[in-house]
Amino acid sequence: MFLRVQLPLLLTFLAGLIPIVAFFFTEKARLVKVPNDRLEKWMIIIAGFAIMLGVVNVVQGNIRKIERKGPGWHYAIFLLIGLVLPGSFGLLGAFNVGPFHGISPHADGSPSPFSFFVSYVFQPLQATMFSLLAFYVASAAFRAFRVRNLEATILLLAAVVVMLGRIPLGESLFAWIPGGKLALGTFTEWLMNNPNTAAQRGIMIGAALGAASLSLRVILGIERSYLGLEKD
């Protein structure tokens, strides 16, 4: 019971309280600043060890999938190759084993095996995933801007104004009116800086208080569902 309940709650209490206390003291207050700095370092070290736990889990899970030959088991082979190959290149390069010299590109500009993998496989794959966003923004906007009710219509009008106000076409649309060239841009800025910012700040204030309230519940051990535990 102590190891499963009291000890995690005690550690949570200390880990939560120390940074709060440290925030209200200057750097000279070593009594609180030193434990706080230590805590931050421990967090990095623990995260480093935890990632090994993750890697072991990935390997175990995918080997199991290949053994069972369940649906999509062949993807697991590619995943393991993608994990082992660049990982080995990185490790061997870091220790200068055989032809693997370093992990950065060589002095003559030629890539090391590891940097080759990063530049020509990993980064293009990342860019591919990120670039998909453009298409998803279009499909989400199409759904959001359909005129279904009054709120959706206001949203559509505001979106059209903001989009036009931020492109040269928007300027030329009203250029024939004296002083109208900047009208749409100015209105766009007003929309973004006033109604939009006001709504955002409302959410931010609520969220900040919510976060502080949750922190207090966690530090005091009232909220313990993240440990999978019920109340007392």
């Binding site: 959410i203 931010m204 609520g206 969220a207 208080l209 919510g210 976060a211 309230s213 949750l214 519940r217 009232i222 909220e223 569902s225 993240y226 019920e230 109340k231």
Partner: peptide, 16 residues
Amino acid sequence: GEELYAAGAYLSRDPA
């Protein structure tokens, strides 16, 4: 925002 932070309390219905 705050609805997310309130989720644990809301779901547990714990008075505290």
